[in-house]
């Protein structure tokens, strides 16, 4: 990791320690507050990867991933919010020539939710749908009949807590559409999803680190049968193994390039995040099952994000085809 990237990592970490760490549980319970969205803009997180013509900071891929990685360590919801705006919503608006609206989103005067029920495979046609909504949101991006639509209307938040990304009010929310505008074909959205494998990996790895760090701290102080948990070989060896895997993948994230390698990392990091967070929770015992300890959210988010961002069929097929160089894995 070069000096500039390390500085970026340190700066975002400092922000997270000061602004998110003590609030992370509240984010889960009550949603991310407006002041935090403002703080993301003030920090330059929103638009970090976008061209200056859009008001962005033109950070390179690694710099942007450093932001997502660090945010996910503390709050996967916060990381997904930044990703969703920078990697999906703003490029879609820009691609459709809606630069004024994109500017409003950058300033925070307009918020746009992302309805995910029919964006990806294995979705069915749920209505009301699962939406990544930053409440209150008057706009929603959704896919209908092969088109990506920007819909304006009335949003109603569900009282049911979703599995993951609770800080963003993800849930079976309903949205009464008043008007809609086409932003492009569904393929344009798929391309953005596919093209942001590195960013998605950064979130998977960041949240894994958040969970594993908690497990390591906890197993240092929690004693059973007169010894701290870290003294037991199954615990120490497993956590060390997971930390090693994390280190390898993090190195890969910040040093490699290319679509195929991005897909490789996305497949590995998505799988890894489920495994790492599960063990992190397990080593907290019953306390890990409680929201207060802040580790169960990583477990929930790892699975919810896998469902939202990783296409078990499509992404694996794309990876297989890039490796074979021909059509494969379709039976």
């Amino acid at each position: 990791m070069n000096e500039q990237l390390q500085m970026m990592m340190d700066n975002v970490k400092q922000f997270c320690e000061q602004a998110i760490k003590d609030q992370a549980i509240t984010f889960e319970r009550e949603g991310i507050p407006e002041s935090m969205f403002q703080a993301f803009r003030d920090q330059g997180f929103i638009g970090a990867n976008l061209p200056s013509s859009m008001g962005g900071a033109e950070l390179d891929r690694q710099g942007y991933d450093a932001i997502l990685f660090r945010l996910a360590e503390y709050s996967p919801s916060a990381a997904f919010y930044v990703y969703m705006n920078n990697s999906i919503i703003l490029p879609l608006l820009s691609g459709a020539g809606m630069n004024d609206l994109a500017g409003e989103v950058m300033k925070g005067t307009v918020r746009i939710g992302l309805a995910s029920s029919n964006l990806l495979e294995g979705t069915g046609d749920h209505d009301p749908f699962l939406s990544t909504a930053v409440f209150p949101s008057e706009h929603m991006i959704k896919v209908e009949n092969g088109k990506v639509l920007l819909v304006r209307g009335k949003f109603q938040h569900a009282d049911r807590k979703s599995l993951g990304l609770r800080g963003l009010g993800v849930g079976m929310n309903s949205f009464e559409a008043e008007e809609s505008k086409e932003l492009g074909r569904k393929e344009s959205l798929e391309k953005l999803m596919l093209g942001s494998s590195w960013e998605q990996s950064a979130i998977f790895l960041g949240l894994s680190k958040g969970a594993l760090d908690k497990a390591i701290e906890y197993t240092k102080v929690r004693k059973t049968f007169n010894y701290p948990l870290k003294d037991y070989s199954p615990v120490a060896f497993r956590l060390s193994e997971l930390m090693s895997d994390l280190e390898f993948m993090t190195h890969f994230l910040f040093s490699e390039e290319g679509e195929q390698k991005g897909l490789m990392l996305k497949a590995r990091s998505s799988d890894f995040s489920r495994k790492a967070t599960k063990h992190a929770l397990q080593y907290h015992g019953g306390y890990g099952y409680l929201e207060d300890f802040g580790v169960e959210k990583f477990y929930r988010d790892s699975v919810a994000l896998s469902s939202l961002m990783f296409r078990p069929e499509g992404d694996k097929k794309a990876l297989a085809e890039s490796i074979y160089g021909s059509k494969s894995g379709y039976l």
């Binding site: 979705t123 699962l130 078990p312």
Partner: peptide
Amino acid sequence: AETAMEVTGMTGLS
């Protein structure tokens, strides 16, 4: 339960 979530994707989530 985890495999079911993986196989069903968004359907499992909702």
